[in-house]
Design a protein around this nucleic acid. Sequence first.
DNA 1: TTGTGTGCAAAAGCTTTGCATGTTG
DNA 2: CAACATGCAAAGCTTTTGCACACAA
Lengths: 159, 159
Amino acid sequence: MKQTANQDKLLSEVRQIFENYLLENKLRRTPERFAILTEIYRRQDHFDADQLYDFMKQNNYHISRATVYNTLELLSKCGLIIKHQFGQHATIFEKSYGNAQHDHLICLDCSKIFEFCDPRLHQIEESMGRILKFNIERHALTLYGHCNGACDKTSKDKV
Amino acid sequence: MKQTANQDKLLSEVRQIFENYLLENKLRRTPERFAILTEIYRRQDHFDADQLYDFMKQNNYHISRATVYNTLELLSKCGLIIKHQFGQHATIFEKSYGNAQHDHLICLDCSKIFEFCDPRLHQIEESMGRILKFNIERHALTLYGHCNGACDKTSKDKV
DNA sequence: TTGTGTGCAAAAGCTTTGCATGTTG
DNA sequence: CAACATGCAAAGCTTTTGCACACAA
């Protein structure tokens, strides 16, 4: 099946990236770290640390919360996942390799998360960097709004 | 002194707005609520709940954490302060009456907060609302970057 | 007088840390 | 075999909650 072949290719690519990162930083390549990476890229879209911990447990891995948090930090540092702080709740993560950079729209009625991309953001970054004399490294834009009942048809995930 | 006169005018305006809000919602006009509003508008720029709690205590008010959180929630609902979630730390607030709407730039070196405004954001909100069929209510944009040592000269506040 | 708001302290929720054990390099 | 990662549980921090008392309406 074509889908599965793409999936396998993606998995081997991200594992390779993580392995290189660990080697370059003289960190250990433990089975726990690769298991977490693999499951994130196999399944989840937006998720928090606790959802991931539960998920690993349900799938018969024996991995502690400390390791989950530690590994999420490493994956974030090497760019394979992105951290988000939506609202006041737990930190939300999403896999980033193979995804176009995008921002988020959150429904105030049902908390579902949508993604969008707008090139004007790069222009804003550039202008503000120039004016305020900053090297802008990244941005976080979240729009909040009401879906008028349309969420159920198109949502990808929940916060 | 001109500055003081403006300050007094601002204070009486925001107290009036809060009072109207409380009356309209059949909430009580307690001394604690007005004390918190007054001190926020008299002093703080960006602050978190705990900083405000400490500040009130130092100034010989006897106000509990529960009341601080409760009042911040009310002030946020009636638009006199704005809540922010920068990074993974505590919720940050700022007074909003009399301030133009703006977004934030945070220095990754020294955590200082700068403000800016760009009209292209309204355009983005409008486009995305139309495309995704949402009524966009608000946005949160934060830029992260490096100041190249310029922060000390111009910063307003720290996270 | 009635019921909401307050203070206090305890609890809850997310994340980090300390320590003993296990495993990678 | 030495250093680092893990698991577990406890601690930390921010925020919320429960309860008795105070006070605004």
